[in-house]
Amino acid sequence: MADEELPEFEVPVGMFQDLEDLKAQVARLSAQVRELTEQGDPDPGEASADTDTAAADEPETDGDEEDEWQFPPFILLLDSPQYDDELRALIEWVEGVLVPGYLAEPSADARWCHLWFEHPVAIARLHALWLAWQELTDPATCGYTGPSAWHRDHLDPCMRELRPSNGPFAGCTKGEHQVDHRMPGVVPSAWNRPEG
C-alpha cells in the first residue's frame, strides 16, 4: 500500500485562507475560554453549599454585563463624557497609526479631510475600523492572520467608502472644509401630504 500513488487534488487558494481564519477563530475562542475560567473564584472549594444554592437562585446582576465588554462599545451608542473620551482615543489612533501608515496624499480620487472628526459618517466608519484593528492585531486572540483579515475585510472597504470623490469628504479640499455638504435638503415625498 505504501507504493501506491496518492491522487493529486487541486485545493483552491481561498480554502487555505478559510482554514487560517478558522484557526484564528478557534485561537480567539480558546483565549476567551481561558480568560473566563481564570476569572472564576480563586478557591471554589471553600464556598459552602448554602452560598452556591443562593447564588443559583439569584438572577444575574448588572456587574456581570460590565465584565462582558472587552473593547469599548460602538461610539454612536455612547453619550458624553464617554463619547468624548472615546473620540479622543480614536483621534489618537487615526492620527498616529492610520494617517501616517496608510493614507497617501489626498487627491481628487482619494479624498481626506484633516477635520474628519467633524464628519459623523467618518467617525462611525473609522471607529468601527479601529475596533476591528484592536481585535485583529492581537495574536493571542486571533492568531497571526488577524492583520491580513483586518486589511482585507475592514481597512480596504472602509477606505473605499470614505475616500472616493463622492464620499463624505467630497466637499472638502486642501484649503476648504465642509461638513454639511452631505446633509439632505427637504425632499418632496409621499411622507408630506399636501394640505387641502
Rank of each mutant, 00 (worst) to 15 (best):
D43C: 06
W69I: 09
M1Y: 04
C113G: 01
W191S: 12
G146H: 02
V179Q: 13
A49M: 09
A54D: 12
H119R: 03
W112A: 15
L129Y: 05
P72E: 10
Y83M: 11
L22E: 06
A149R: 01
P147C: 02
W116T: 14
T173I: 04
E5W: 00
A124T: 03
V33F: 04
F74Q: 05
L103I: 02
C142E: 01
N192H: 08
R160I: 03
P164C: 14
P72G: 13
Y102P: 12
E118K: 01
L87P: 01
A132L: 03
E118F: 01
W116S: 06
E195D: 14
A132D: 01
A27G: 07
A110R: 11
V11P: 14
T51C: 05
Q17M: 05
W69L: 10
D64S: 15
Q178P: 02
V33I: 09
D153Q: 08
T137V: 12
H151P: 01
L90I: 05
R160W: 04
M183H: 06
G143M: 00
T53H: 09
L155P: 04
D180A: 13
A55W: 08
P100M: 07
M159L: 13
D57T: 14
P188C: 08
F9E: 10
I123C: 05
A110T: 11
A128N: 07
H119D: 08
K174Q: 09
D50V: 14
L126Q: 08
S80T: 14
L131R: 05
W130H: 00
H114A: 15
C113I: 13
F169V: 03
H127N: 11
W191I: 09
A2D: 07
F9K: 15
L77F: 05
Q70M: 10
F169L: 06
D67R: 07
V11E: 11
T137H: 06
H151V: 06
W191R: 05
D138R: 03
P44S: 09
G196Y: 03
D180W: 15
D50K: 15
T141V: 14
Q82E: 11
D57A: 10
C113V: 13
E20A: 00
H177G: 11
E86Q: 08
L129G: 00
A47H: 09
E92M: 03
S165R: 08
E58W: 09
F71R: 01
S165F: 08
E66S: 09
L36G: 15
L29Q: 04
E161G: 04
E38Y: 07
S148G: 06
E66F: 05
D3C: 02
A2N: 02
D156C: 03
K174G: 03
T61C: 13
K23Q: 13
P168T: 02
A24M: 02
E20F: 00
E161H: 10
R34K: 12
G185D: 14
Q70W: 00
R34I: 14
L78S: 02
V94E: 00
F169A: 00
S30W: 08
E118C: 04
D180T: 15
V99C: 06
E135A: 13
E118A: 06
D180G: 10
R88A: 15
A55P: 14
P184Q: 01
E8W: 14
R182A: 09
E95V: 09
